[in-house]
Simulated scan of single mutants.
Amino acid sequence: MQLLALNGSLRARSSNGAVLRSALALTDATSAVADLGALPHFNPDLDTEDAAPPAPVAALRRAVAEADAVLVVSPEYAHGVPGVLKNALDWLVGSAEFLDKPTAVLTASPSPAGGEYAHAQLRETLRMMSADVIADACRNLTAIAPKTDPATGTVTDPATLRDLRTALAALLTAAATRT
């Protein structure tokens, strides 16, 4: 089972990075994290039928296509999806890599409301892209920052870890039924 993760935060010590690292540690699936920071700004003129897409875009598309499932982890920024993640999704909209791909969305924020706006936006965008967004695998984790270990950069809260384990099990079960 191949799991690809997309992290909407480029910060090295972000709480979403902690959620991502913790989630990947809870699974036996082979996993990779896409490098969204390497992508150029979305420009449809760079992605025409007559030209090959930029190398980082081609690598992202290949990684999504080869994955059995995709895990999207993101903070909320100004009540929305961070630009780096939106940019990555924009590069994928016109291609078919997300077609029926089992996908989970995890949003994490120290705010009591969590990342509810970004969470809803991501799920809607991914559904529009024809991803199979697995409802039982999606989570909006609130007040996550105090529940991480700054030394290891991982989640320490047992209830959150159980929730992540349940979410990943739902995602990987959905993916297993397709292979």
Rank of each mutant, 00 (worst) to 15 (best):
A135Q: 10
H79K: 08
A108V: 07
G37T: 15
R165H: 06
L92W: 10
T48A: 00
T107F: 12
E66Y: 11
L164D: 04
L46W: 12
R21M: 03
V72R: 01
A175S: 07
A145E: 04
A143V: 15
V57F: 04
N87I: 13
N87Y: 10
A145G: 02
G17I: 03
A104M: 01
V64I: 15
A135Y: 13
S14T: 05
L168V: 09
S130H: 11
A96G: 06
S95T: 10
E49A: 10
Q2G: 01
L20I: 11
A151Y: 11
T173C: 08
A170L: 04
L10I: 10
A88F: 05
H119L: 05
L26C: 09
A113Y: 15
A143E: 12
R61H: 03
A18H: 03
S74C: 08
P54S: 05
T177V: 09
E116F: 14
P102V: 13
L141W: 06
A120D: 12
S22V: 09
A143Q: 14
N7H: 05
L171R: 11
L106N: 02
V81H: 08
Y77L: 00
L172A: 00
G83N: 03
S74A: 06
A38D: 11
G83C: 01
V105N: 05
L85C: 04
A23R: 07
A167I: 15
R127A: 05
D136F: 13
D35Y: 12
L85F: 13
R61V: 06
K86D: 04
A52N: 13
L106Q: 00
E66M: 09
A32H: 08
Y77D: 00
S95N: 06
V84C: 03
A34I: 15
A170N: 07
P102A: 00
R127G: 00
R62M: 03
L36H: 06
A59G: 04
S22K: 04
A5W: 00
L126M: 05
L3S: 02
L24T: 15
V73L: 00
A55L: 06
R162F: 13
L46Q: 14
L39K: 08
H79E: 09
L161T: 14
T156R: 12
Q2M: 09
V133R: 02
L122Y: 10
H41C: 09
L71K: 03
S15I: 07
S109Q: 04
S14C: 02
P158E: 02
F42P: 01
I134W: 13
L60K: 07
T177H: 11
R162L: 06
A58F: 07
A55Y: 08
G153Q: 14
A5E: 00
A118T: 13
A55R: 05
D132G: 04
L171G: 02
L10K: 00
G94N: 10
D45L: 12
A51W: 11
V133S: 02
D100E: 07
P158H: 10
D100L: 04
T125I: 14
K101I: 12
A29R: 07
P102S: 01
A18I: 09
A104T: 01
L122D: 02
